[in-house]
Design a protein around this nucleic acid. Structure first.
Lengths: 165, 165
DNA sequence: CCTCCTGAGTTCGCTGGATGAACTGTGCTC
DNA sequence: GAGCACAGTTCATCCAGCGAACTCAGGAGG
């Protein structure tokens, strides 16, 4: 294993960490419960009481997380009325929220691999059309499928506005 | 948009949330700074002082996160000796840690799309061989490329040991 | 040998966020 | 109009994160 492999590229060169998209995304959904709320949202949960029952999170925290996610445009509050009940509102994923799906899939895949005992995973994701298991894969714009992180070259871009190098 | 789309599948049926791989993974790397430590590790950072300088995290927190990640087998402590310095140790990704790469890529991709202004992303990932941009994609075992979360069917599996349904 | 310096932590007091329980408010059913 | 269920809000407590100060180990330099 060649230690200069990554090192020469970005390790010492201090690119602007404050603009990092990983940090930015974590600032939005990195708080405790946020991603679990989204997991449930992807599974079809929409109502406050259901989130609360299923997650077991404190109501105050849940209120805060839902509000934050709505504020960021990841969920939206939609009024609805169940028969025989008063009007309430439910929380639904927006496109911005739906685009967090790969993040949850990635977290789930890692947990399935390293935390499940005997390969006994609690849930599978299957292709709705053909029923086969789905998984994430890294591909490049030329169509090559990458075999792993080793094939990826991180390239910092200086924030030079007004010119497209 | 059909609201019964997901609902009929898993929303009300209470599968066992306590074994959820998303929650499990977040329990391991979901604390503040953990994923940012890993981001830097993927960029080649290995030494305590470099993590500290680059992340700006409090030393105590950083010590705790690094220790936790080592305990979970995501990083490993490797002794090394720089010329003219005493022996120290550095933190390197294990395979288990490298397998968290897709999670970081997913987080980064979302941030690039929704948080970067003018498409001015701070860093790009390129295929080391051909230089093209890389991105995550959902594929199924039959080789179909899924167009999005809508094509995915979550299937809870009961923890029935001893029988492969 | 003694002192200074640096890397790698540990300790400490403070503050802010998380927690569970209790409380509020609203509209429907009975 | 009393009771109930949903959807929060308020409150006291507690823990985790924070920055600063302190500790420890081993070279370098005199």
């Amino acid at each position: 294993m060649n230690s200069a492999h990554y090192a020469g590229c970005v390790s010492e060169a201090l690119w602007d960490r404050s603009r990092c998209s990983v940090a930015g995304t974590l600032a939005v959904v990195g708080e405790k419960w946020s991603l679990l709320v989204l997991r449930e949202a992807f599974l079809g949960v929409r109502r406050f009481a259901d989130f609360q029952r299923v997650l077991g999170a404190p109501k105050a925290v849940l209120t805060d997380r839902l509000t934050t996610l709505v504020d960021h445009g990841i969920l939206r509050r939609v009024p609805y009325q169940a028969p025989g009940e008063r009007q309430r509102h439910e929380y639904r994923l927006t496109q911005k929220g739906i685009d967090l799906h790969p993040t949850l899939v990635a977290l789930m895949a890692w947990g399935d691999r390293y935390l499940a005992e005997d390969g006994d995973v609690p849930m599978e994701l299957r292709h709705r059309d053909c029923g086969e298991l789905v998984h994430l894969s890294l591909v490049c714009d030329a169509g090559h499928e990458l075999s792993g992180a080793r094939d990826v070259l991180p390239v910092p871009r200086a924030p030079d506005h007004g010119g497209d190098g």
